[in-house]
Design a protein around this nucleic acid. Structure first.
Lengths: 366, 366
DNA sequence: TTGAAAGCGCTAACAT
DNA sequence: ATGTTAGCGCTTTCAA
């Protein structure tokens, strides 16, 4: 094992060292490094030999300084521990990697962080070529971020579902997803449909709740109970237990994410509540494990990786755009995955055909 | 909404612009930026006003060039979609953020990637101050990485469990964890203990299997069947189904991770196999959701976040170290979390006291 | 307290 | 095919 791990002590070779070693100018070395054609084969060989010999690596820092480009995308995240966030980051890394871009990742200390200026400034100071704001959309944070954007920032894509005329956004249609889930339950003939939501500071949580609520209202069914969790399975368990005390005759429940749904299933199994006969359950996220819950979970799949991939692609496509481009807004669709916890309506005849879902109607929400 | 999202078009203000605006030298501006004391209050005020006016941000790139430091840590990951990897990254971001370090993240295209040279070179070219190699440890990759380390690389910490005299490593004791799990099952009086392993190219998978195997051998019990999964719950389901055809009278099973354990529980529940009465199950990872599996899962908890945190701390503590430091090797302990799927021995009297676990004995493995 | 000069490592633009 | 000059934006001497 020849080489030791080492600090920066032995001064790193520079382009000038190589030039001296070969008796050529730095320019020639630069040409070799950048695979320019206008170098004689012999010179090229000599330079390459020298480079290999001393293990020279051109400084990307110096290059960035000259080019005013870093081949780096800044990513702002929060809550990497959450399924959605980490899946999205996964898509971002995958796609940026494929185009030779590195990621400069900054994680917000907490979700409520409204002072994002230092974070953005850190990234722009590092001259990232673009920024992806992938922190969950809270009541306050995104709007304030936008208001605070420094004058000269690179292109930025917000991963949020509220479109804006001034900023590029890519989001997932959580509202439609919530409706989709609830309409599925209605189609099953269920009429007492509860909801366990995520924390309502999260826009995702509010949108899903709104979808649930509007679907119920539209159907003419009575409002069901709603309790709030914090996305964890433990909180789903707690919320469901509370809900049972309030309304024991629930016949369906739409849960804001798959993990909380796991908690619901746990309680139901423990209490002998039969799923889906006594209680139909639909989750949200589409995590792979949901297929192996007991029983397997019907859920609304989110294209989270795609979200990350599209964000990078949008950025790459518009890196060179002149100033005040029209903002691009894009919304991705969810998809219902039907499993045992809320089977297809054909499996159990639905008592009445539901009217087709009319135009969106928003109403006061529980 | 005042400011528009914009490209790089309006040339970014530099320190020189500020200097001209204030009629001072660049040096003075630099002093203000760096909060040096030797600037008159009036000058400082004027400079700060100008900076605020044009939204000037000093270029971190230029600074890095001068300082030969980037306040950036390079992270090499693979399989961000996996629970362990993402949890560890979570710890890394948290800790580095706290110290003002940014993360330059590169994801390997796939696990088998043995040619990591370009990745390392990318990071060193960007003059990261340190590198954390957080890709899962495969049969081949880590060793080859170490052999290929470029001459002048910054300090590197390998997140792997095989200690090395030449490189700093931090790992989790998967072998002990596997033993721990299996000994728990033995203490429950189980004697026909199967194992669903992860892909055996992964060192984590091999170590856990070895722990299982050695615990069984040590106890004098007969070897149980072993099947290999790919960490997913679906693969756990498939592996367990195969296992049942081979050995239907299994009374316990140690599963290489919690997700595959979920698959096992799914099959058991579907077939009416009672857990833990007919079959005791122990998983590995300690993911929070395991508490809400049906039944709740006994599992071996891994300190994954701690792993990330310690990696960063090690790096930060040794950034300025001169050359060939003695390598530091560290191993973190796992912890058994006892739940319903394999309850504490007191719950059901164990037939015989097991001898205390003797020194490690490795034997040919299934 | 302030400024001038040199240089970090590289590339673009113009020589030759 | 190769070299020279200038400069990217900043900080570090060293002077004044």
């Amino acid at each position: 094992m020849a080489r030791q791990q080492r600090g920066n002590s032995p001064r790193r070779a520079t382009i000038r060292d190589i030039a001296r070693m070969c008796g050529v100018s730095v320019q020639t070395v630069s040409r070799v490094i950048n695979r320019r054609p206008d170098v004689s084969p012999e010179t090229r060989a000599a330079v390459e030999a020298a480079i290999a010999q001393v293990g020279f690596q051109p400084s990307a820092v110096a290059r960035s300084l000259v080019h005013q480009r870093s081949s780096t995308i800044g990513v702002i995240v929060a809550g990497l521990a959450y399924f959605g966030v980490s899946q999205t980051l996964n898509g971002i890394t995958e796609r940026s990697e494929a185009s030779g871009y590195a990621l400069l990742v900054k994680e917000l200390a907490n979700f409520e962080t409204t002072d994002i200026v230092p974070v953005i400034e850190f990234l722009t100071a590092h001259r990232v070529d673009g920024i992806i704001f992938a922190a969950p959309e809270l009541e306050t944070n995104v709007r304030s971020v936008q208001a605070q954007l420094p004058a000269a920032s690179p292109p930025i894509v917000f991963l949020k579902s509220e479109p804006s005329p001034n900023y590029t956004t890519i989001g997932i249609d959580n509202y439609a997803g919530g409706r989709q889930a609830t309409e599925h339950l209605l189609a099953l003939g269920r009429r007492r449909i509860g909801h366990v939501s995520g924390p309502l500071e999260w826009r995702e949580a509010r949108d899903r709740r709104d979808g649930w609520w509007d679907a119920i209202r539209t159907s003419g069914a009575a409002a069901g109970p709603r309790f709030e969790g914090n996305w964890s399975s433990a909180s789903g368990r707690a919320a469901f237990e509370q809900m049972l005390t309030v309304q024991p005759d629930l016949d369906a429940i739409f849960v804001g994410n798959d993990q909380m749904a796991l908690g619901v299933l746990h309680v139901a199994n423990a209490r002998g509540i039969r799923i889906p006969d006594d209680l139909a359950v639909v989750g949200f996220d589409g995590m792979a494990e949901a297929a192996d819950f007991t029983p397997s979970l019907t859920t609304v799949n989110q294209p989270l990786r795609a979200l990350g991939i599209l964000a990078v692609e949008d950025l790459l496509a518009h890196l060179d755009d002149p100033d005040p481009r029209p903002a691009r807004n894009r919304m991705l669709e969810t998809e219902l995955i039907v499993r045992e916890s809320a089977p297809a309506p054909s499996a159990r005849p639905s008592p009445a055909k539901l009217p087709p879902s009319p135009a969106v109607v928003r109403a006061p929400r529980p």
